[in-house]
Amino acid sequence: MTNLMQHRLFLPLLALALILLANLVLSPEFFHLEVKDGRVYGSLVDVLNRSAPCALLAIGMSLVIATGGIDLSVGAIVAITGAVCANLLNSSFDTLPLVILAALAVGLAAGMVNGSLVSIFGIQPIVATLVLMVAGRGIAQLINSGQIATFQNDTFASIGIGSLLGLPAPVVIAAVVFLLVQFAMRFTALGLFIEASGCNPRASHYLGLNVRVIKFLVYCVSGLCAAIAGMVITADIQGADANNAGLWLELDAILAVVLGGAALSGGRFSLPLTMIGVLIIQAMSTTIIMSGIEPKYNLIIKSLVILVVLLLQSPSFRQQLRGLSGARNSLGGKA
């Protein structure tokens, strides 16, 4: 029992369970799943489906944060890839592989820009990526000529609204990316190297690790993940809105990584925990919508839930709680 409670997955999972439970109370239908035309429907699937873009961003973000960096530009990269996809689909180059390749190339290029700013030019990550965060939306608008670009292409749209193995395509895509990256991190030494260069870049350099290259690469991965998320979002709404696509999604991604217990100063990271963080955020939004509270209270509730989840993870808070319940127990014992 205590072993279970000490497992690092325990608290995040508990928080997620509590939020899902709240959903169940608010709507008894919540856990209801239904199979129609070989596809599973239900609120839970919706939560998964809506978490997919954030999950994709959070995967890249975990790696960046593990090296002690941060990538604010992912939302803007989503917007750029969206604009590129939509415009390609409206042009004569509308074959699916080409569009996907172009989107990935855009993401990779953006990641390389961030990566070289951070590791070659030595600019601090938060500003280096802020530049692309600001300019990136401009670039997306430029590609879209200031309009919202829509398109008609069922094959591409299926990336966002199709289904695979009975699950929505975005969920499957996110799961595949997650497994790929997780495999690369834990079945090779990459994870260890990334963590080391985040914990102590100087000592890592002395160890013969190429810290610069590692930092460069994580931004590239983050850019690629953002490009995939961008495709999913664009395909989902069948259009690219340069102003609003992926807006503030980077904050959700960072939040998810931190809810998963990572330190923003770099070091240890865990992709499974990050995924739980993403689900917590999405499940919470669903709860707020389902509860029928006036939308103006949304932000306040969101911030309070975040605070509670964070507090639950804080050792000193748990000690206080234990102290409190201990005191009550001993009082009870005396009485």
């Binding site: 030494a189 260890l192 190297f193 914990c199 102590n200 890592s204 013969g208 070091g267």
Partner: peptide
């Protein structure tokens, strides 16, 4: 320049060999 702190003793020992 030496220790890579929050990493474990095991990781600190094998990391140069791994690198």
């Amino acid at each position: 320049d030496g220790i890579v702190h929050p990493l474990s003793v095991r990781e600190n020992m094998i990391i140069a060999h791994q690198a």
